[in-house]
Design a protein around this nucleic acid. Structure first.
Length: 509
RNA sequence: GGCCCGUUCGUCUAGGGGUUAGGACGUUAGAUUUUCAUUCUAGAAACAGGGGUUCGAUUCCCCUACGGGCUACCA
C-alpha cells in the first residue's frame, strides 16, 4: 500500500503477568517487524491508575528478554518517540480530545458513575449513544451557558466520542478480510477520563499516529471497538496514515469454554504465564513456563504454531526461520484451544535437538538446585548427551542425570526385593570381585564379562540386569546400564553395588 | 438481549469446485531397546446442519445451529 517503514508495537498494560496470548501477540509483532526490516516498539499502556501493579512492567521486560524478543524502542531503551509510557504522555492527549470537541465529534459528559449504573440497571439495552445521548447530562443535551458553568466550576467530566448516525464503518483486516459495523450500534465511548487520563481508545490512536505505527496487531477482543478507532483516525485527520489492522484469534481454554485465563492454569495443571508471576498484593504465585523448565525456543515455537503455519508440514522452527517464513495473512481466523500435551512435545523436541553446550547452563542449574554441584565439565557434557532424549522439561534432568553425580537416595525395592535370592547376592559379590581386580570399566567389555558371570552362576542375565540398574540409578530408567557403569567408574560402581546389596538382602521390615 | 467474529479427526492444523481430505500432538497395536524413554512401522479418528449456485460442492452464497468476543471514566 505504502512504502513507509514497518513499525509495530506491543502495548500491554502493566496489570500482572504476561499470558500466553500476550506473548504470542509480541511474537507475531516481532516476527512481522523483523521480516520487513522494521521496528518493534514496546509501549506501556498504564492509563488506568487503579489497576496499576507494581513490578508488572519489569516483569514484561524480563519476559521479552527471556524470549529473546528485544524491542527496538521501549521505556528503558528509549527512542525517538519517547516517552513510551502513556502515564508520562498524559499531557498530550487532552489537546486531541478538545480538538474533537471543537469539531463536534466529541462532547463533554457530566454524568456520574452512579447515574450511569442506574440507567444500565433500569433500562434494558442501555447504551450511552444515539438513543439516550439527549436525555443525559452532556454538552449536547445541556444549553451552552450551563455547560460553561459546569466547566468553570470544575465539575468532574469526561469527553466522549459522538458516534455519527446511520453510517457504516468498514475496514480490511489483514487476517479477517472485510469487516464492517453500523455506527448506530456502537456507543459513545469515553475518550478522556475525569482524571485527565485518556482511555485506551484515544491513547492507542494518538500514540500509534505519533509513533508512526504502520501495522497494528492485537487480540480479537478489540474488534468491537475498532470502529471507534477508525473514526478517530478519520476525525483527527490522519486517515491516510492509519496502520493496517490485524486482529489475532484468541487462545481458548483446553476444556470448557472461553478464553484462556490464569485460573485455568491452576485448575488444569499447566502454566499460562511465560514466567512465574508473584503478586505482591495478594501474595499469589502463578507459575510460568520458564520455571517449569521450558526452553524459550520451544515456548516461542509452540506459540508460533498456535494459529499460524507456513503451509508445509514443518512444525519445528527456529526464531530465524520464523522470521523468514512468517506472514500475518497465514494466521488463522478461529480461536485455538491450548494443548499442554503438544506444548510438552515441542519442548522435548527442542531439548533433543539442542546442542549440549546450550543445554549445559540450564542443566547445571537444575542439578545445583537439588544440591548437586558439578565440577567435571566433560562428564556433564557426556551425561547430557546420554540422557537428553528422555527429558521433556528441564527438571527431568535431575532424575535422568542426577545419579551420575550422587548415589541413589532410595531404591525401587519393589522391583527387586520380592525376587531376591542368595544366588544373586553371590553373583554381585563375584561381580565386585571381578571389577576390583580389573582395570577401569569399558562398557562393552563389562557387558561381556557380566553375561559370562551370570552364565557361570547359572542365572538368567535378565534376572541380574535389572537389579544392577537399580543399584546404580535407583530405579527402572536411564540409558544402558553398562554405559552408566563406565561413566561412574570402577570405584563408584563397586561402592554402589555394595551399598545396594545391604538394602536388597536385608530382611523385609 | 444487542453487535461483531468464527466453525475440517479429541486437540493444533493443511487443503480447496472433481483428492484414497494430508500432517502433527494425543491414542491403539506391533518392532527395537534384557529398564524407562527415544526411534521405527501400522491403525482408529474430521469437512456442524439445511437450502441454493454448479455437470459436480467439504471448498462459493444464504439461513439455522453451535462456539467465541465485546457490550466500564479496564485494557
Amino acid at each position: 500500500m505504502t512504502d513507509k517503514k514497518v513499525r509495530v508495537r506491543f502495548a500491554p498494560s502493566p496489570t500482572g503477568g504476561l499470558h500466553l496470548g500476550g506473548v504470542r501477540t509480541v511474537l507475531f509483532n516481532y516476527l512481522f517487524a523483523k521480516k520487513h526490516h522494521g521496528d518493534f516498539v514496546l509501549r506501556i499502556e498504564d492509563t488506568d491508575q487503579t489497576r496499576y501493579v507494581e513490578g508488572a512492567e519489569q516483569y514484561i521486560l524480563d519476559c521479552l528478554k527471556w524470549c529473546g524478543l528485544h524491542p527496538d524502542e521501549s521505556p528503558v531503551e528509549g527512542g525517538p518517540f519517547a516517552p513510551y509510557r502513556q502515564s508520562e504522555r498524559k499531557c498530550i492527549y487532552r489537546e486531541y480530545a478538545e480538538r474533537l470537541v471543537m469539531q463536534g465529534h466529541a462532547y463533554y459528559a457530566f454524568d456520574t458513575a452512579e447515574e450511569l449504573d442506574k440507567n444500565r440497571k433500569e433500562i434494558p439495552n442501555f447504551q450511552y449513544g444515539q438513543v439516550y445521548r439527549e436525555t443525559l447530562r452532556n454538552s449536547i443535551s445541556l444549553p451552552q451557558h450551563e455547560v460553561d458553568a459546569l466547566l468553570d466550576a470544575h465539575t468532574p467530566h469526561v469527553i466522549r466520542i459522538k458516534m455519527p448516525a446511520d453510517e457504516t464503518v468498514s475496514f480490511n483486516d489483514m487476517i479477517r478480510g472485510h469487516v464492517s459495523f453500523e455506527t448506530n450500534q456502537v456507543d459513545d465511548k469515553v475518550l478522556l477520563k475525569a482524571d485527565g487520563m485518556p482511555t485506551y481508545h484515544l491513547a492507542v490512536v494518538v500514540d500509534d499516529y505519533l509513533m508512526k505505527i504502520s501495522h497494528a496487531f492485537r487480540g480479537e477482543e478489540w474488534l468491537p471497538s475498532a470502529p471507534v478507532h477508525l473514526l478517530l483516525w478519520e476525525y483527527l485527520g490522519w486517515k491516510a496514515e492509519m496502520p493496517q489492522w490485524a486482529h489475532l484469534p484468541l487462545i481458548l481454554k483446553p476444556d470448557g469454554h472461553g478464553k484462556l485465563s490464569k485460573r485455568d492454569g491452576a485448575r488444569l495443571g499447566f502454566p499460562v504465564y511465560a514466567m512465574t508471576w508473584f503478586d505482591a498484593k495478594t501474595g499469589e504465585l502463578t507459575p510460568g513456563f520458564r520455571e517449569l523448565g521450558f526452553l524459550p525456543e520451544a515456548f516461542l515455537n509452540l506459540l508460533a504454531t498456535l494459529g499460524w503455519n507456513d503451509g508445509t508440514d514443518q512444525e519445528i522452527f527456529t526464531l530465524d526461520e520464523l522470521i523468514e517464513k512468517f506472514s500475518i495473512e497465514r494466521v488463522s481466523k478461529a480461536g485455538a484451544k491450548f494443548d499442554f500435551e503438544k506444548a510438552k512435545w515441542f519442548n522435548a523436541e527442542w531439548i533433543k535437538r539442542s546442542e549440549v553446550g546450550s543445554l549445559k547452563p540450564a542443566v547445571s542449574k537444575v542439578l545445583a538446585d537439588k544440591g548437586i554441584v558439578v565440577t567435571d565439565d566433560e562428564k556433564l557434557e557426556t551425561v547430557i548427551n546420554l540422557v537428553k532424549d528422555r527429558c521433556v522439561v528441564l527438571p527431568d534432568f535431575y532424575q535422568q542425570a542426577g545419579y551420575f553425580f550422587e548415589q541413589p537416595k532410595e531404591y525401587d525395592l519393589n522391583a527387586v526385593k520380592p525376587k531376591w535370592t542368595d544366588a544373586k547376592t553371590d553373583f554381585f559379590n563375584a561381580l565386585t570381585e571381578l571389577l576390583s581386580t580389573g582395570g577401569d570399566i569399558e562398557a562393552h567389555d563389562l557387558e561381556t564379562k557380566f553375561k559370562a558371570l551370570a552364565e557361570e552362576k547359572t542365572l538368567k542375565v535378565g534376572d541380574v540386569m535389572l537389579p544392577f540398574r537399580i543399584m546404580l540409578v535407583g530405579g527402572k530408567f536411564g540409558p544402558h546400564v553398562f554405559d552408566i557403569a563406565a561413566l561412574l567408574g570402577k570405584e563408584e560402581t563397586i561402592r554402589r553395588i555394595e551399598k545396594a546389596l545391604e538394602a536388597f538382602s536385608a530382611p523385609a521390615p
